[in-house]
Design a protein around this nucleic acid. Structure first.
Lengths: 254, 254
DNA sequence: ATGTCTTTGTGAACGCGTGCACAAAGATGG
DNA sequence: CCATCTTTGTGCACGCGTTCACAAAGACAT
């Protein structure tokens, strides 16, 4: 997962476990693909394979939504698409603002999957006056002075933060004060928000570091295995290597 | 979290829980900020607040790495930065390739936090011949025909996929065949990989849908609370509303 | 050297999530 | 109408992760 939730830890919503909610979009995507191929029904086994999960898990997930399957047959694709969409709240329109129209913000604005399911980019906002009026993805960028007005006029409740880390908390505070209650944060910072506001973060750097951890471990194991069983910490022959298992309070490449 | 892991489910690496590994980058970021402000030591309480976690959790996380704190005082910032960096494998250099230089790929290439900690963009790869040679973020884009050679020449073990969904699995297969063992996937698809290869995914669409779920729930609760206790599904006055709790196997806005 | 005070490190309990394995349900064919 | 076969829905057990609460450890003052 390239993400981690913040806040709202144990508040099981209407009995649907958080882990299940996180998988529903996955199922929905697989089901939509089946729907486009006009497949009428699908078994838990097939759908689970398409979504990359265990079939028992999938069945249990669906059981939280209700009994939508038919034993001996499987699930009706269209029906399930509708039920999951409704459960996720995708049968209504969600206006979204993107704040911070740099490289990433522009990429997000252009992202097709954005508009595809109930989400609509209501406005693009940037602090740079030079950006104001310039169209990105067909939408004119507006200056952040008007942030509050934009939020209120469009009834926006979901905000995307794609600003530099330094500006993120201030933007977040303004969004929340203006009425936004869900935030998707791409800035590499921990945001603090009042209760009742959901924050999800997407952090490239964290994901890479997690991969590096496992990568290092794989390299170490492999070296140990071919060496003769010594559980060495890390042993890569390429690239400059620091002390193998040093304990010195050294400085870092930062 | 804007992510979910795939594969390597229970394989506790060297005794460090996966959940802890996922938090180490967070601690590292907070510690680096302290280090830049020349703060010598920090207590678990302070650091936990900066990282947005519980202090007991933080102490337990650190206990997996060893006893690096001093009772009555706290943790030495520099020392801890080094230990976590080493544990995450950031004391070595990780060449990374980005495949798919569209809006998102370009944004990633330009992302500063990329190079900051041990990661180096070794190459940008795209399937479009028109892109070949064109510099993005100061690095010339190379054609995907040369993918295998690029991987091998640079000793790349981490690949980032930023292609359209349709191309992702094919790119993934080629990366893995060429020797990549860790993949960060931005394409909205489930990738299947052989054992021993780690995949982490970052999926904007999924994150938004999770937010929408909670948002809908909040709106419902609020309406129920002000209405008189009926647990209605959703009741927003703005924007067109579908049937409130319909059960019909209807079609979807897709 | 001794006492006090702060903060770590961890034992233990609890809750969530996962996966097995099977009974119940329904379709299908004779 | 009955038997068989497929597939769902779920009870149950297990393991991971989180949190509490406290004993042990060390700093610091006297």
């Amino acid at each position: 997962m390239a993400t981690g939730r913040t806040h709202r830890p144990a508040t099981r919503s209407r009995g649907i476990p958080e882990a299940t909610v996180a998988r529903l979009p996955l199922y929905l995507r697989a089901l939509t693909a089946l729907s486009e191929r006009s497949v009428p029904t699908v078994s838990s086994e097939e759908l689970a394979a398409a979504a990359g999960v265990n079939s028992a898990k999938l069945r249990k997930d669906f059981s939280y939504l209700g009994s939508y399957g038919t034993r001996g047959v499987g699930y009706d694709v269209e029906y399930l698409v509708y039920q999951i969409s409704r459960e996720l709240g995708l049968t209504q329109d969600w206006p979204v603002v993107i704040v911070g129209i740099g490289n990433l913000g522009a990429a997000l604005a252009n992202y097709g999957g954005f508009a595809s399911r109930g989400f609509r980019v209501a406005a693009l906002i940037d602090a740079d006056p030079a950006m104001a009026g310039k169209p990105v993805a067909g939408i004119p960028v507006q200056h952040s002075d008007d942030l509050e007005k934009i939020i209120q006029d469009n009834g926006v409740s979901i905000g995307v933060i794609a600003t530099p880390a330094g500006a993120a908390q201030a933007v977040c505070d303004r969004l929340v004060a203006a009425g936004v209650t869900s935030i998707l944060n791409f800035a590499p910072t921990v945001l603090s928000v009042p209760d009742g506001v959901d924050v999800r973060k997407v952090d490239l750097s964290i994901e890479l570091q997690i991969l590096a951890f496992h990568e290092q471990r794989k390299a170490g194991e492999e070296a140990a295995a071919s060496d003769g069983g010594v559980p060495a910490a890390a042993a890569r022959s390429d690239s400059a290597d620091q002390g193998p298992d040093g304990d010195m309070p050294a400085v870092m490449p930062a």
